[in-house]
Design a protein around this nucleic acid. Sequence first.
DNA 1: ACCTTTGTTAACCATTTGGTTAAACCAAAC
DNA 2: GTTTGGTTTAACCAAATGGTTAACAAAGGT
Lengths: 203, 203
Amino acid sequence: MARTKNEDTEQQILEAAKKVFQLKGMDGARMQEIADEAGINKAMLHYYYRSKQLLFEAVFSHAFAMMAPQLNQILNDDSSIEDKIRHFTHDHLSFIMAHPYLPKFIIQELNRNPDFVTNMKTKTGFPSIEKFKTQVAAEVKQGILKPIEGEQLFINVLALNIFPIIASPMIKAFVRAEDEEYTRLLETRKTEVANFIINAIKA
Amino acid sequence: MARTKNEDTEQQILEAAKKVFQLKGMDGARMQEIADEAGINKAMLHYYYRSKQLLFEAVFSHAFAMMAPQLNQILNDDSSIEDKIRHFTHDHLSFIMAHPYLPKFIIQELNRNPDFVTNMKTKTGFPSIEKFKTQVAAEVKQGILKPIEGEQLFINVLALNIFPIIASPMIKAFVRAEDEEYTRLLETRKTEVANFIINAIKA
DNA sequence: ACCTTTGTTAACCATTTGGTTAAACCAAAC
DNA sequence: GTTTGGTTTAACCAAATGGTTAACAAAGGT
């Protein structure tokens, strides 16, 4: 058989599709461009993935699967809220600085099609916030933290980490920063975001 | 003349274009859909705006012009940092809750075409962060605030306000909140975001 | 009344786009 | 060495899409 290539080609397609979809989104992406990027014939895309929609879903699932474990870290490990926040903000910001298109892509496409989230929620490994909420409530009760809802704290942590990535073109304009200076700004945030949050919530 | 309609039609087109572009983005929007939404013939879109690109730019400029004055409020009025933050977070979050597609649209399209920002920057009325930076530095020196860079504080304020809007489908999934509960969560933020920030920076 | 200008429409056009097909290709099984 | 069956390609197709055109309608000026 012409094997030897089977999984190789499929993987090449997925990589090319990731690149193009994450850069241009579902609507802006072109099957021909993905084929070119993969260095193969356009018919192969349909041979392996049937349709643009299914190829897109493969890419989206993959992207989401890269983000989920990071969230489970802050939500489910056993250290104190303060330690979790310090570790998470640092590691997570490092990660999305290395993959800035991931959060842009996920958030943009979830806005385009909110039904997507319904499918995601049912999947195993979908982050659950329950433990985090309980823990925050406990530390508030113990007087370690100022009163705050777990949901709100969780939102704040994500916001402070992710927003500077997804809104980077806008923020660069506001603070008059070029790429290198903006990178420096983000580097600072790897530790300063945690300090900011801890100051805000520590009793 | 077939007048009586001139400016009326042009305005109708712009309103329809806003609706469709802000919902679907440049790539997802269709000229026919905009025409249908406006209840007119597709040729009229080109009669008044020449091309999809120019119509889009009209919508984008309009959208940006709605956001800019709000930012100039926090950046340029004369009250203390604490007062500015309390006022801004409340007013701005109220505003974008009423117009959730505005920040989604602006950020998405700036990511799609970062060159856009170059044009924006040259326009008069483009927010400048200089005064805010000076003021933060002064209050830090006076011992009113903990040490923090003006840029970082500005980014944090925007992040905490805007992120819950642009990432709403994702956050709704994480916190298992339906629309009504999520609205309640955002309502809380109108005051709690300010408390959070003030706690974080007050010396 | 007639012409000119502006607004509006239906029909049309060229190109792009996602998707299909039929044939060629190629490595292994026999 | 021929058959076999998955893989790959060039060519093709129908629908969608941004944009154009030619004719028409309404109104004002003269």
